[in-house]
Amino acid sequence: MSDAQVKTLGERQAFPPLLSVDGIKVHYGAIQALKGVSLTVGKGEVVALIGANGAGKTSTLRAVSGMLKPSAGRIQFNGHDTTNMKAHQLVPRGMAHAPEGRGVFPNMSVQENLELGAYLRTDTSGIQQDLEKSFTLFPVLKERRKQMAGTLSGGEQQMLAIARALLSKPQLLLLDEPSLGLAPQVTEAIFRTLREVNATGVSVLLVEQNAHLALNAAHYGYVLETGEVVMAGPGKALLESAEVRRAYLGE
């Protein structure tokens, strides 16, 4: 499956390279989830990955963060070949992944969850500062810092997952369906925060089913269909494309 089949719209804004995924394939037993996905994310860029259920969005993120090992293809991050690295080796290199379903530790307090995000860091005062920063970003987490994470609402858990991911001081934040199961106002608040985070220089690779929301927030977007990238372009351009509007925006 070559890149020639990807329909590309518009001009991409230039960012220095950070992540480059080149033709990765992923299999679950006999089922091929990714048939050769290529994409890039630049330093300071927000990139959205949209597509239907089962298109391979989550598999792509998992391969990037080292949760899954691709059977073919190459992943480069920050100048290193990270194709065969495991998840825990990528964290110190600047990758953070807030997984699907949030993945907070429900039997630990909010504070403990956040501290786990900083597991590899040893700069105690820096961690303290960043904890305060995440409480400014999500004030509700400060109120609930002693509470078990399992008792938080869905939106609060999503905020915790993002805040926890940020505590590893990532250069690239991978976000899997942050809007899933959340009320529209909560989703909006999370996307507002995302822009703030991006403004501090953190790149974001965002997986969303809510294409409208994702493409509005993203500099660039990729459309995934049955394990392949079928379309790519700046967020605005994709939003205006007739095909995307028909297939993903319900028009």
Binding site: M67, K86, P99, G103, F105, N107, M108, R164
Partner: peptide, 24 residues
Amino acid sequence: TRFGRAMRAVSWDHRVAALMGIPT
């Protein structure tokens, strides 16, 4: 301890624990 916290994280979900940089 830090190791204990890592242990409890692995105990809940070792895949997510790895995303915290914990060598599971």
